[in-house]
Write a protein that binds this DNA or RNA. Structure first.
Lengths: 255, 255
DNA sequence: TGACTTATATGCATCTTGGATATATACTTC
DNA sequence: GAAGTATATATCCAAGATGCATATAAGTCA
């Protein structure tokens, strides 16, 4: 899916200074879809482009894959450096106390014209991050609400004032693939817990699944399925709040 | 997963003629896992390498992504040119008479040392092909039986005389990912029909699922699920053979 | 304390699944 | 052509999963 945009003379000149045919090899980047949950809404972290093409458009955080790093490492680096998650990201889940970021390869996008400058192949990743770990850095990095029009494969994004934006490159398509992936994954994993604090109640987990899937779930069967899956363990602790306090659960990472 | 192999002096010299640091950009290839079914066994099409490294090792058919072709196109080209499927492959399923080849992107492998010459990122695809479409071309292209040791992530390959081989590069790992993908996919699609002729009986389809999943399935519930899915349509024709002839079904591509 | 709110437990009708059995329809053999 | 054999399809039922209603438990707040 190629977006046709109007190009300014300045941008035209910039583009013409590239000579795509001079390179046999494509550039390879990683782009990371960072999903989080705020106020019952699924949101994605986007960065504002400071270069042509798509100057001032919002885009997925991304970067070139360096010579000596693996794709997973490149994605983790982007998460740390470009997305303001310094110190939080580790692919390995070594520490039992930390709540590491879930990061998984999504799909590789390689349409020859997806970047007007030159051939760029992008290996897309997606990450699930607890909202409290994200700090929006001023005008450059922000969270956007996601909406998927009925039946459409692409995704629409809105800022906190409900203003709609277009994304750079094929990034709306990448977001669409990410949403479809995570929705599919929910049917066989309680992956939603990656968006919650380390301890959470079953109701919270159900709410996460409901916002991602965009539909109500049956409370009892959700409880039963989750407990029967054996992937959650009770901590013995209780939440506090209105009404009877609920048991706090934790994901069994060791299994 | 990097394979450490013994290198001959000839190969050593060959490798040292490469200067990896001279290139900022990685090379990008596509490798295609071509799966088929012969005599109730799942098999993969492999090609014998005629160059260093891994000279004379069997490997997945693959090739560099050309400047102006998409990844899907590159994979289809490899399928046509390198795998002896000339004239059979089309991503678009335009023709109702032809039985097109199922081709889907699998995963992208980018460990910096997966190719000892230089940085090569491989976008892996997998294809499901009806056995009758494949012609093994002498010593260069052959089908190998696959076996997955219990719990192992990798895959072992055997030729028709049950001799075991090691694969080039990380291709055994790629095969493992392909098998896991197709097994997972069977739980929510009747994808096995891609390995059968256009018309097939439910029993044949069940046999396909059973060989891929490596376990017996319940006949009645398999029938019910398949028919209830609405993805198969009866042709009205019957197979011929021993016992009561079974209805021949066809996959509903138009839905 | 009593009203309120939410979690957890229990009971039950309905749907799905696994498994057995019965019936149908071809081919093969005598 | 009748009997036998093999396999497909239909029917039935028990066990399990799921959706839904109701009852009970355990906190907070006035």
């Amino acid at each position: 899916m190629i977006h046709l945009i109007h190009r300014s003379p300045e941008e035209q000149q910039y583009l013409s200074s590239y000579d795509p045919s001079a390179f046999d090899r494509p550039s390879v980047t990683v782009d990371v879809v960072i999903l989080t949950l705020r106020e019952g809404q699924l949101e994605a972290l986007l960065v504002k482009r400071k270069e042509h093409p798509y100057l001032n458009y919002w885009s997925l955080p991304g970067g070139f894959v360096l010579t000596h790093e693996s794709l997973d490492e490149a994605a983790a680096r982007v998460l740390r450096q470009k997305a303001g998650l310094e110190g939080m990201v580790g692919m390995e889940r070594e520490s039992p106390h930390k709540h590491p970021v879930y990061l998984e390869q999504l799909y590789t996008f390689g349409d020859p014209r997806r970047d007007p400058r030159m051939r760029v192949i992008s290996v897309a990743y997606y990450a699930l991050v607890e909202a409290s770990h994200i700090r929006e850095a001023g005008e450059e990095i922000a969270l956007f609400k996601l909406r998927t029009p009925e039946g459409a494969s692409s995704v629409e994004i809105f800022d906190s004032k409900n203003k709609k934006y277009s994304l750079a490159f094929d990034h709306a398509e990448i977001l669409g693939v990410a949403l479809r992936r995570i929705r599919g994954k929910l049917s066989y994993t309680p992956i939603g817990f990656e968006l919650l604090p380390e301890r959470f109640t079953l109701r919270q987990l159900q709410a996460v699944h409901e916002t991602i899937l965009q539909k109500k779930l049956n409370k009892d069967s959700f409880r039963r399925k989750m407990l029967a899956s054996g992937m959650l363990e009770a901590t013995g602790e209780l939440e506090r709040g209105l009404g009877r306090p609920a048991e706090l659960y934790r994901f069994r990472r060791e299994v």
